[in-house]
Design a binder for these strands. Sequence first.
DNA 1: CTGTTAGCGCGTTCAA
DNA 2: TTGAACGCGCTAACAG
Lengths: 353, 353
Amino acid sequence: MENKIYTIKDIAHMAGVSAGTVDRVLHDRGEVSEASLRKVQTVLKEIDYHPNMFAIGLAAKKKYCFICLIPSYTEGDYWHSVSEGIERAARELRPFNVTISYIKYTHADEESYKEACNTLQESKADAVLIAPNFREQTLSLAQHLKELAIPYAFIDFNMEGAEALKYIGQDSYMSGYIAAKILMRDYKAGQELVFFLGNNRDNPAEIQMERRMDGFMKYISDEYPGVKVLEFVLNKTDTACDRRMLNEFFATHPKATFGVVFNSRVYQVGNYLRESNKRMDALIGYDLLQKNVELLKSGEVKYLIGQRPALQGYQGIKALCEHLVFKNPVMPVKYMPIDILMKENIDFYFEFE
Amino acid sequence: MENKIYTIKDIAHMAGVSAGTVDRVLHDRGEVSEASLRKVQTVLKEIDYHPNMFAIGLAAKKKYCFICLIPSYTEGDYWHSVSEGIERAARELRPFNVTISYIKYTHADEESYKEACNTLQESKADAVLIAPNFREQTLSLAQHLKELAIPYAFIDFNMEGAEALKYIGQDSYMSGYIAAKILMRDYKAGQELVFFLGNNRDNPAEIQMERRMDGFMKYISDEYPGVKVLEFVLNKTDTACDRRMLNEFFATHPKATFGVVFNSRVYQVGNYLRESNKRMDALIGYDLLQKNVELLKSGEVKYLIGQRPALQGYQGIKALCEHLVFKNPVMPVKYMPIDILMKENIDFYFEFE
DNA sequence: CTGTTAGCGCGTTCAA
DNA sequence: TTGAACGCGCTAACAG
């Protein structure tokens, strides 16, 4: 357990070779005789050598170009948080000559995704962070990257079959299960449940929602098997239409006072409630979008489940960097915590700092 | 929004002085004429200069000695987590010549704390991280440090009146309020509440418990004003005694099925329940000690409130470093998130990585 | 008061 | 195949 910090010079001295040779061995870029190689390796085995990161950062001339394939976003939405995490990683890694750029696509728009994938294939990246969308394009992209030995990581959603360096995201099934467990605390016999769903069922991102639903239903069927579950499809954009439909829905289902929104747009329901001066007994949703958080504070939304989007972006980039730049091993899967937020603890919540 | 990365040389060039002078200005260690000072400051105001941390790390010769005054601990307990965070910070900061050492005391033991404070005053530290215990000694220690201009930060518990560089911890009142809100979900009329309390009321750490209790009672009196609340004092060490007393307690109070432990020793109650093959309808406690987590998983404990001890240690050290080494401004207060853990999300929980 | 200079540890030439 | 030499950006010591 020596505490001494060894430098390349130390190793060179001990092995009886020069620093240059040690460096060649460490980065095995050949041009080293068998004899020197063995001498250096012997020394390396004996000591606990950790290169000085600061010297590496300072000296490195190699530029790394990371590209992120993520949905485009507006201020305060989910992918905005992801990009904040990415930006944070970018700042930390800038001294290592890592530069990060983006290729954005429209979420759930197949044409847009396809185009983005193509753009990515044409650009030359050293590593890629992907928020996957459509399966087929993703797999073909993964294939292409694998052939070029370009490491790639997935965030948010794991595309089975495309073996990425790393997947970072939440266990959707369990987060659905927890949503149910939290929500049903307030349940009293006779009340009905509403699932507010998105209207684009062809969307691959719906797979995630469905896993959440499965988890949710698992809890319901275990603990509250008799509960009546209604479904209401929210229009992604047409608020006026939603409003009419919701009015009608709540008029015809007066007992439907427990709501779940499986995507991150619980604000659609929350805003409706606020505007029409209604309340549900309990409404739960996902993700801490600004709009969602406001409604949590004002009470229309009772619970939010957080999945640390910024941390996902941050860790995704860091993982690629660990692998590519620092040559450190990387765990293939990292599940994010399932954070439970209510009016009372939302103010103390943060992902960083 | 220029993206250019400026170096000291750039600044020197722009200001028409030498790099040495710029360095003197940046670290205001005098020996600079009014004229040069102004020229450099003008340039600094115009550009967005961030020194290259790697160069700093590589070049710095100054040694920094940080000392942590914290309770001694055993594997898996609360202060062990804190120290893990500190160690993580230590690893990150080692290249900046920051070394971290500890002075430990026995929690809630006034003599031990006094002695530790004295040891600290005699040792020469460049910065100090304090987990405060007894008020009087803490204030006098703070006074001493202030006179020597040694920065100090508090974690876990804020000692009012001793103006530290930073306080990092949880809002105890709110975390008590949340504990009540969570616990009472399962409440059914007629059931009784038990507060399991520690037996050393003279302990200053009890102040924190009391704030939690206040928050808890605030919720109870707002939402369940009629609930009967019982108290049970746990012996810190004498398990056999506790066991007898608990048997008697539960025998005489069959409706007392809702429990709260305001300190981190919910495992005392949980283990009793497990051993005597009992269950309470709901039991909530604080802190993710190994023992607590096990009981959460096996069901004797239903909820745990987490307060990120490791992050507290980590951020405490980092704050001192930001202030002392990097000369960056530091926010005086940082509240930790109030994490809600249940059997279902405990496996995904982590403070780092 | 100011400019110059010598490293910090490592990556990368370039001669030998 | 190797070693020596330079520079990354910054700090600190030194000479002017």
